[in-house]
């Protein structure tokens, strides 16, 4: 039987590919036969990710997606895409009473504005192939409240609502749009605003006894990028180790 999960013959762009979930997804996509294009700000870490990719034909393009000129440069160089995974994002821990305009910008620019603008530019320049699959990395934080998480949660909720509308607009061309909502995953972002000790105690409370790893999320991304999920769009899939609420720390 043909493997419905294969990504052979697909060209996939991964944003935020220099670390964490983005790097994990890039590695997994290459492992499943895709030609992967990596993008992020940090060239050295992009080269590290590139080095980890199985197979040939992969490449990277440095870009700060919050900058219009960087996005333009990226989009110009891209081939036609069969898949796009938007992983680039930042974490923020600020109590509501301390939120200033700069805090909002610092989170909403990379987490909401940049992916929306990149998506629009990719569509205008006709870089998304028919029947392509688009995946956004959101978070369970969009619906699970934790004190101090307001900006991050709100940014991910915005991304999810955006993606659902996008899925309707692209459905006529059989382009699918889905979100992945992970609970806590071990990445650099997890360490923002918490000590290692607190995180270790927190992960023990998950029914599956640990936080996620980038490869856990990557396997779900492979499913959403592959033809196995051909009848799936506008969905938001939670992947949580059984911890259906983010646990207060």
């Amino acid at each position: 039987m043909d493997n419905p999960f294969t990504l052979a013959g697909k060209t996939i762009l991964v944003t935020g590919a220099s670390s964490g979930i983005g790097r994990g997804i890039a590695v997994a996509c290459a492992g499943m036969g895709a030609k992967v294009i990596l993008t992020a700000r940090n060239e050295i870490r992009l080269q590290e990710t590139l080095f980890l990719l199985e197979g040939d034909g992969h490449s990277y393009i440095c870009a700060d997606l919050t900058k219009a000129e960087d996005r333009q440069h990226l989009v110009e160089q891209l081939p036609l895409l069969d898949g796009l995974v938007q992983c680039a994002g930042v974490m923020s821990r600020v109590p509501c009473k301390a939120i200033g305009a700069e805090d909002i910008q610092q989170v909403f620019q990379p987490n909401v504005e940049a992916p929306m603008l990149l998506q629009a530019e990719l569509l205008q320049e006709k870089k998304i192939a028919k029947s392509a699959s688009i995946v956004y990395i959101a978070s369970i934080a969009a619906r699970s409240a934790v004190a101090g998480n307001a900006l991050y949660s709100a940014s991910k909720a915005a991304l999810i609502s955006y993606a659902k509308c996008l899925s309707l607009e692209l459905a006529p061309r059989m382009i699918r749009v889905n979100c992945i909502c992970p609970a806590m995953v071990w990445t650099d972002l997890a360490l923002v605003g918490a000590t290692q000790e607190e995180l270790d105690a927190d992960q023990a409370k998950y029914p599956l006894k640990r936080y996620g790893r980038p490869e856990d999320i990557a396997n779900l991304a492979i499913y959403l990028l592959s033809n196995a999920s051909a009848w799936m769009t506008g969905s938001c899939v939670e992947i949580t180790g059984g911890g259906n609420e983010l646990i207060h720390r």
Partner: peptide, 26 residues
């Protein structure tokens, strides 16, 4: 509470331009 801690870290970053890790505050 940990939320007070967050507020303090945030104030230090904004008013003094210094980033302090939660562990350092602890």
């Amino acid at each position: 509470s940990s939320l007070t801690g967050l507020a303090i870290l945030n104030m230090v970053a904004k008013k003094y331009g210094v980033k302090i890790a939660p562990m350092e505050l602890k």
